[in-house]
């Protein structure tokens, strides 16, 4: 027994060391954002000798070459509307495919699965050219709408519903519930875990998408945070690591908070689907 205890203490120690190594870049990012320019360029230590908020003041000031506030607003709008749209579209489609004996069901299911195997790169440039053709570059439409064409969500929810007992819904129908009532009162609560998982995955995918927004956005005003950070990295005069890290902290913290909040649902969703 003593040997077993020793072994588990050793495992915890090893895992902790790895965890510290893993978190180091993030911790370094945060501390560097509070350093002065000269210190950030020469520093070989983690903590600032002289703490400063100058970097944050600079990136949010009116004369800044970055547009941090606007980018944050764009990101919030695009990710929230985009995620809601994906969930709405996918839940309705998956419900109809799994529960209603609709015409053409097999064809739609085949489409969903075939589309999953086709790499995204083949549609990217033509989609950009189509948006260009209808003068919708530098608007919110290409930043939000195309994500709802993804079939992964339909596939996940469809599979989840297929393995879920139908008795409850049938009882509701017998009691005179309408289809809409069954959908909102019976189906929605039961698919919550998989929808939450889809929601978080979609949110992070839209938040962190880089290539697609970079194709359909030129105007600085229309950039998302992810795209904005790329602009800063590529900017020729942006050679200030402290200010750079302040920007990445601002661009990263919202996603990290959402992620940490959703983490418990994530784990639950995966566990629930595993029990069955």
């Amino acid at each position: 027994m003593k040997k077993k205890r020793m072994k588990s203490v050793l495992l915890v120690v090893i895992t902790s060391i790895l965890a510290i190594l893993f978190l180091f870049p993030l911790v370094w990012m945060v501390f560097t954002s509070f350093k002065t320019l000269s210190e950030s360029l020469s520093s070989a230590g983690l903590f600032p000798n002289e703490w400063t908020l100058e970097n944050y003041r600079a990136i949010f000031s009116a004369s800044a070459d970055s547009n941090m506030l606007r980018w944050t607003f764009n990101t919030a709008l695009v990710t929230l509307v985009g995620t809601a749209l994906v969930i709405f579209v996918d839940v309705l489609a998956a419900y109809a495919l799994a529960r209603l004996n609709i015409p053409g069901k097999k064809i739609v299911l085949a489409i969903v699965i075939i589309a999953l195997t086709v790499p995204g790169i083949v549609t990217l440039f033509p989609a950009f050219y189509l948006f260009k053709g209808v003068n919708l570059l530098d608007t919110y439409y290409p930043l939000i709408l195309p994500y709802s064409a993804g079939t992964l969500g339909v596939f996940l929810i469809y599979n989840f519903l297929r393995s879920f007992p139908q008795e409850l819904e049938e009882a509701a129908y017998l009691d005179g519930a309408t289809q809409w009532q069954v959908l909102t009162k019976v189906i929605f609560p039961s698919i919550k875990p998989v929808v939450t998982t889809l929601g978080v995955v979609t949110f992070l995918a839209i938040y962190n998408d880089f290539l697609w927004p970079s194709l359909v956005t030129n105007n600085d005003e229309m950039k998302t945070l992810t795209l904005g950070v790329a602009t800063l990295v590529q900017g020729s005069n942006f050679v200030n690591p402290a200010a750079m890290m302040a920007s990445t902290v601002v661009a990263t913290v919202p996603a990290l908070l959402i992620f940490l909040w959703a983490n418990k649902y994530f784990v639950k969703g995966v566990t629930n689907s595993g029990i069955k």
Partner: peptide, 21 residues
């Protein structure tokens, strides 16, 4: 959670971070 944390960061932030590390 610790080892999954960095997955929530965008590729541009990761690049900015490693560019300066």
């Amino acid at each position: 959670t610790v080892f999954f944390l960095s997955y929530a960061i965008s590729v541009t932030a990761v690049s900015a971070l490693y560019l300066w590390l």
